[in-house]
Amino acid sequence: MTPRTRRDVLRASALAALAVPLAACQSGYSDEPDPLAPLAEQARADADAARAVSGDLAQQVAAARTAHAQAIQAEVDRLNRPKSAVRATTPAETGMAGLRQRLATARKQAENLVATLPRYRAGLAAAVAAGCAGLQQVSDQLGPGEDPGTAATAASRVPDEAIEPLQKALAAEHAAVWVYSLVSAFLPSNFDIGVSDGSAEHQGRRDVCVRMLTAAGATPDAPEPAYLTPKPVTDAASAKTVVAAAEADAAAAWRGVLERTDDAGLRLIALRALLGSARRGTRWRQAAGESPAAVAMPGAQPS
């Protein structure tokens, strides 16, 4: 059997992403203030504060929070709901300590909205939260941030419309488990814990996917015998890059789940998985020497 590529694994998720703007346009107009407006204002304030702090680390925060502000504001402008007074939260600390608190506040602010927003907006808020979670992993000066925990239990039910994206999440988890097994032979012993923890996390997510799909009456897709990696794994450097890519694929798949369901339980599982892959992916990107180490909006489809 021909090994599957990363693009094959997430192709349906990519197609779903194309439909997102259409789904978003179906949202009716509301007279209520836009719940995303505070996130945009907070992101702008955080970016301004980060630009005032010297050093590359602060500028990474500034760049990411600027990207958050632009993405959220574009969605706020699209719906054009009534404007309301919005004030950003300003921590008592300044400098790097202040940026650390700002990231924690912004992440929690975005996470708290995921359960209640329309589908596309839930994915957007989750990506912002994951971007903040990734930044928290770059340095102890910014984090480490709260561990989102693992999806130890399955959602009570899986809506029919979520079965397809959940199968894609399962495919990404199968691939991630395979990748972690592959790279273990190329990494030095000081990476053993990272490989073991990452493998266990993805195995747990895989098993949850299997249980949810089975309970919904669907047949969980089986793993492929092998997967094509973005580049051949020949040494420690290429191994780190491939693991980071597997985490990015998992993040994209779980964001796809968020954007295809209204079920609160399933959204929580998907959010935790997205946050987990953003955090773990940051560490692997950093180990591989990639810059920036933290992706501003985790869950974007791979090119």
Rank of each mutant, 00 (worst) to 15 (best):
Ser13Gly: 15
Ala16Asn: 13
Ala16Ile: 08
Val20Tyr: 08
Ala23Pro: 06
Cys25Pro: 05
Ser30Arg: 12
Asp34Pro: 04
Leu36His: 05
Pro38Gly: 02
Glu41Phe: 10
Gln42Leu: 07
Ala43Met: 02
Arg44Pro: 05
Ala47Cys: 04
Ala49Phe: 04
Ala50Thr: 05
Ala50Pro: 03
Val53Trp: 07
Ser54Phe: 12
Gly55Tyr: 08
Leu57Gln: 01
Ala58Gln: 07
Ala58Met: 03
Gln60Asp: 13
Gln60Tyr: 06
Ala63Met: 09
Val76Ala: 01
Ala85Phe: 13
Thr90Arg: 10
Pro91Met: 10
Ala92Leu: 12
Glu93Asn: 11
Arg102Lys: 10
Thr105Glu: 09
Arg107Tyr: 08
Gln109Asn: 13
Ala110Met: 05
Val114His: 03
Ala115Trp: 00
Thr116Ser: 13
Gly131Val: 04
Leu135Asn: 01
Gln141Arg: 12
Gly143Met: 01
Gly149Leu: 03
Ala152Gly: 09
Ala152Trp: 07
Ser156Tyr: 06
Pro159Ala: 05
Lys168Met: 12
Leu170Met: 12
Ala171Leu: 11
Glu173Asn: 11
Ala175Arg: 15
Val177Asn: 03
Leu182Cys: 09
Leu187Tyr: 00
Phe191Ala: 14
Ser196Phe: 13
Gln203Ile: 14
Arg205Cys: 14
Arg205Gln: 14
Val208Ala: 13
Val210Ser: 04
Pro220Glu: 02
Asp221Arg: 14
Pro225Trp: 00
Leu228Asn: 08
Leu228Met: 13
Thr229Met: 11
Val233Leu: 09
Ala236Asn: 06
Lys240Asp: 01
Thr241Leu: 15
Val242Ser: 10
Val242Thr: 15
Glu247Phe: 13
Asp249Lys: 14
Ala270His: 02
Leu274Gly: 05
Gly276Cys: 07
Gly276Asn: 05
Ser277Lys: 10
Arg279Cys: 05
Thr282Phe: 02
Arg283Gln: 15
Trp284Arg: 02
Gln286Ser: 12
Gln286Thr: 04
Ala288Pro: 00
Ser303Ala: 13
